[in-house]
């Protein structure tokens, strides 16, 4: 067993509503933030819909949890990788995603975007570099 810091990646592949995977994935991220590990999130396939702006769930009777993504910076979760090809395949562009910022403590608390758009090839490298991948 090693108690060193590990690289955790939460892989989000499903739409935010219709199934509970996205919501319960976010619950793991929030609990996991207390463990001081190196945490990143990845969004691909229908998972990119989780970050779209202007979500309104009133008519389907379930909680809109998308504002919680904006709080992740406070939990020191500051890397949200979004796959460019998954956006394009769904007719989405980065402008369709909500703005998620964090304060960079290594850069005089400058506000920086948490969302990083990456190519499919880059996403493969990101996944390969992890110690623990939790797929939802």
């Amino acid at each position: 067993m090693s108690d060193d810091v590990k690289k955790f990646l939460y892989l989000n592949r499903k739409a935010p509503y219709g199934t509970i995977y996205a919501l319960e994935a976010l619950e793991v991220v929030l609990i996991g933030a207390a463990f001081d590990q190196d945490v990143s999130l990845a969004f691909l396939d229908d998972g990119v819909f989780q970050l779209t702006r202007g979500q309104d769930t009133k008519e389907i009777g379930v909680k809109n949890f998308s504002p919680t993504f904006r709080a992740l910076g406070d939990y020191e979760v500051t890397r949200l990788y979004v796959e460019r090809e998954s956006l394009e395949e769904r007719g989405l562009s980065p402008d369709d995603l909500q703005e998620i910022m964090y304060e960079d403590e290594d850069d005089d608390w400058a506000e920086k975007p948490s969302i990083r758009i990456v190519s499919r090839a880059e996403m493969a490298d990101i996944i390969a570099a992890q110690d623990v991948v939790l797929s939802f």
């Binding site: 090693s2 590990k6 955790f8 619950e27 793991v28 463990f35 590990q37 110690d131 623990v132 939790l134």
Partner: peptide, 15 residues
């Protein structure tokens, strides 16, 4: 709790 899942990820070689 979910902490048991994270702890398992930390303490095992493969998840």
């Amino acid at each position: 709790g979910l902490g048991q899942l994270i702890e398992m990820g930390i303490q095992t070689d493969r998840l």
